[in-house]
Every structure is written in structure tokens, then in C-alpha cells.
Measured scan of single mutants.
Amino acid sequence: MATGGRRGAAAAPLLVAVAALLLGAAGHLYPGEVCPGMDIRNNLTRLHELENCSVIEGHLQILLMFKTRPEDFRDLSFPKLIMITDYLLLFRVYGLESLKDLFPNLTVIRGSRLFFNYALVIFEMVHLKELGLYNLMNITRGSVRIEKNNELCYLATIDWSRILDSVEDNYIVLNKDDNEECGDICPGTAKGKTNCPATVINGQFVERCWTHSHCQKVCPTICKSHGCTAEGLCCHSECLGNCSQPDDPTKCVACRNFYLDGRCVETCPPPYYHFQDWRCVNFSFCQDLHHKCKNSRRQGCHQYVIHNNKCIPECPSGYTMNSSNLLCTPCLGPCPKVCHLLEGEKTIDSVTSAQELRGCTVINGSLIINIRGGNNLAAELEANLGLIEEISGYLKIRRSYALVSLSFFRKLRLIRGETLEIGNYSFYALDNQNLRQLWDWSKHNLTITQGKLFFHYNPKLCLSEIHKMEEVSGTKGRQERNDIALKTNGDQASCENELLKFSYIRTSFDKI
């Protein structure tokens, strides 16, 4: 039985969820670079991206490699990797027998973001014989899940209580170790020597080791999670996991709180800001991140802002960003909400898709409305799209047979046209069989910064309504002859009103 693990408890099935942008060198404390989270699957090609990484700022997932063999891993080693800020997950990587050479110096898994409450997941690794993470000293947050690894031993010899604050939620089941077939031998045991430290858990006094050649490092209890030197002297209180010299914040392997210019500090002093819960960055760093993602459509890219001495992905609820200094300031009234469309555009074809934009005031991208039916549609669209004030790209209304009016965009005031449909149009209306009105132009103002209007096959939309939009939106004169079809717009509506004058002759039985 794995020490510190839980057996036999019912657990939810383990679901495996399925960018080499360097964020800056980590400095003297770390020998390499800070790398983003990685999802490495199918083959070993991307694994080489770990070569210079000291910190993975995010998670590391290595999974679904069915053609790899043990010899493929023999020359692979990433000794610079010290810390993973989120979680480490391995799933069905064939041929991998140990992690001792792959990650010989991995010391800390912070667990800032977890995989279903777990910071370390080893699942269905069919050839893994031992973990071998002999320098792993601290899992700051989260638990361990090690399950269905039929060859995995050296679990009962690990004292997880020396690595985690609590072992109650560890789930370590259905491994070879369960069948008591392992016969784990710690260093020196074969020669009758006791080389590794022994600890007591559940009444068992057991030597602690990761492999037959690597003991588990056990520091004096007084050192807590700070770690200790090879001689057993406690590291500085700002260290986490390990250090090369005692009581020196510049000799830590990793930091308990924050890293700044080669030393570990309790908090980031001005003019620095907390970033990702582990390091200090200056304003320029946060500003660069903001600008890199301002026009990016890459998933996970955030326009970072500053709030409460932190550089964070977005302002919290009730705050909006001051564009001059990136500071989050309290909103006066309802907060603006910028919604970034991942692929640059979004099609609204149902109430469900409209709900995804609920509360958005600025759309960074283009909207395509293609709704053919739905219950209580006008009210639903207004509830979900009615706060949109600005669209950076274009607005396209296409084959939306259920629409009679666009009044559900009740606050839309600006279409920038930074991206144009077919390279020309910022407003595009095609084949809307029941569209009769755009907006009530006596109450609604709309500016279209650039781009043209396109109207074709809107049989109940009168040309007068379209011409009014040209005047109000500032697009009059931009359109070419064929942009607004004269014969297919309003051709099934009563669009022309003329005053009919009647004269009559009164007659009676005795007068003409």
C-alpha cells in the first residue's frame, strides 16, 4: 500500500482533458527560462521544448504516446526543470519506465491550478516501474492521483506527508504495488545497510526511497516546507523545498512566496507586481503582455491589467481597466465587458449561442446573426445582446428569417469595421425574408467608422429604411451602385405612401 494514499474509496472516473512563447529569463536562482504550460502528445517531438525550461508557468501534460519505446527515452533528460506552477499529468506514455532521468531536479509542483483537485496525476502508464522524482520536495496545493499503472512499484516507500501538507485526498490505487509483488529495495538494503531515512506512518517504520538508488530526502521537522541542505541544516524561511546553503534567500532552489532578481522575498516591493503567484514583474512586463494579447485571437491570451499590486489576466467583477495605466478602477454604474472572439468572429444561430455573449459591452471581433427560429426570440436576444455598444469588426445579418427588427441591439452605437466582410463591408444584410426595420432612427444613433453597407434580398425592408441608415451611420456616399439592390429590397412591402385627393359631386333626387 502506498504510504499516505487512500484505498478502496469510491472515486469519480478520471477524465483526461485534452506555445513556446518565453516569458522571460528567471535569473540567477533558476538555471534556465520560464516556459508556458505545455500539452505534449502523440510523439516526442515537442518534448524537446523543455530543454531550457527551469519553470513551467502553467501545467505540463505528457500523454497518448503509443509508439514510443524505452530506448526512445534513454537520452532524454531535462535537468534544468525545477518547478511547475500548476500540475504534472502523465497518461498512456508507452515505453517510459521512470522519471528519474527525465526530470531529475523537479523540486516543486505548486498546484496553482489543479487537474480535478490533483497536482500530480500518473494514470495508465503501462510501462512505468517507478516514479523516480527523487528531488520532489513540495506539492504546495492539491493532491496526488496514481492509478492503474500495472508495473509501478516504489510507492509504499514514499512518505507523501513530507511532500504535501495533507495526504487525506491522495488516491493511489490499482498499481502493481497493490499486489505486494514489488519487493522494493532501498539503497544499501541488499548489503544489509540502512542508507535512507525511515519514518513512521500508520504504525509502520519504513525506509523512504524513490528507487533502488535514490533515497527520499527527509528534512528535520523544524525546517517545515522550506527544505534543508545535504547536511540537514534548514533553508531560509522564504525558500521552498530545498537550498544549497542554509538561511540564505539567494540560495533557495525555489521560493515559498515570490522570486525577485535572484532572491526569494515575502512580497513584491514597489515598483514590482505579483505575477502568477510566484514571481515579481515590473510595469513594462505587464504592459507588454497586455499589448501582445490586445489584437491576438490565441486562446488563453489575456490583456493583463494591474489590481491590488498584482498583474492579473482581467479586472475583477465591479472594476474596469483604465487604459492609460492598466489599473483596475471601480465602475460607475454597470461595468464594461470586452469579449474577445477566439477566431475573430462568432455566429449567433440560437439563443444558446447568444447567451455566451451575455453582459458583453464591447465585441472584439465580428458578429454573424443567422437565426431561423426560436421561442420568445426578441426578448431572449435583447437579454443577451442588448448591452453590446461596440463591435470592432463587422455585423452580418444573414438568412435570419425569424427577425423582424434589429432593435434587440438596443445599445449598439459603434461598428468600427477594423475587419470587413469580403474585404469591403462593415454591415452586411443578406436574404432576411421578414426583416422590416433596422432601428427606430428617431431614437437610435449608430456610427460606422469604416467599410460599406450591403443589402440584398431583404424583400420587406424598404429602401427608405436603408437610406436612413446611410445618413445616420455616416456611410452615405461610400456605397457603390450594386451594394444596395434596388429590386430585391422592399419588393414585397408597401414602401411608397402617396396622399390621394378626392373630389365629389353631391346629387339628390331633384338636383344634379
Rank of each mutant, 00 (worst) to 15 (best):
P31M: 15
V34Y: 07
P36V: 05
G37R: 03
M38N: 12
D39S: 10
R41W: 10
N42L: 08
N43G: 11
L44D: 11
L44N: 04
R46I: 07
E49N: 04
E49S: 15
L50S: 01
L50V: 07
N52A: 09
V55F: 02
H59I: 05
L63P: 00
M65C: 03
K67H: 01
R69H: 11
R69M: 05
P70V: 15
D72C: 14
D75I: 11
D75Y: 13
S77H: 02
P79M: 03
L81P: 00
I82D: 03
I82P: 00
I82K: 05
T85G: 02
Y87R: 00
L88T: 00
L88E: 00
L88M: 13
F91I: 11
F91R: 08
S98D: 01
D101P: 12
P104M: 01
T107P: 00
V108M: 09
V108R: 04
I109N: 00
S112L: 14
N117S: 10
A119R: 00
A119N: 01
E124F: 04
E124K: 06
L128A: 08
L128P: 01
K129Y: 08
E130G: 05
E130P: 01
L136D: 01
L136T: 02
M137I: 09
N138S: 14
T140G: 06
R141C: 02
R145I: 05
K148G: 05
K148H: 02
N149G: 04
E151L: 12
E151M: 09
C153H: 04
I158G: 04
D159G: 09
W160D: 01
R162F: 08
D165V: 09
N175K: 14
N175M: 06
N179R: 14
D184K: 14
D184G: 15
I185L: 05
C186Y: 02
P187R: 03
G188V: 08
G188M: 15
A190C: 06
A190Q: 15
G192S: 13
C196L: 12
P197I: 13
T199Y: 04
V200A: 11
N202I: 03
Q204I: 03
Q204D: 13
F205T: 13
W210Q: 11
H214Y: 15
V218M: 11
K224P: 08
G227Q: 14
C228W: 01
C228Q: 03
C234P: 07
C235M: 00
C235N: 01
S237G: 10
Q245A: 08
Q245S: 07
Q245L: 08
D248S: 08
C252I: 00
V253S: 15
C255I: 01
R256E: 05
N257D: 04
F258L: 09
F258E: 01
D261C: 04
G262T: 11
C264W: 02
V265K: 04
Q276A: 09
W278L: 06
V281K: 03
C286L: 03
Q287G: 15
Q287P: 12
N295H: 14
S296M: 10
R298M: 08
Q303H: 12
N309K: 09
K310G: 15
P316W: 02
P316M: 07
T320Y: 06
M321Q: 13
S323I: 05
N325L: 07
N325K: 03
C328M: 02
C328K: 03
L332M: 13
G333K: 02
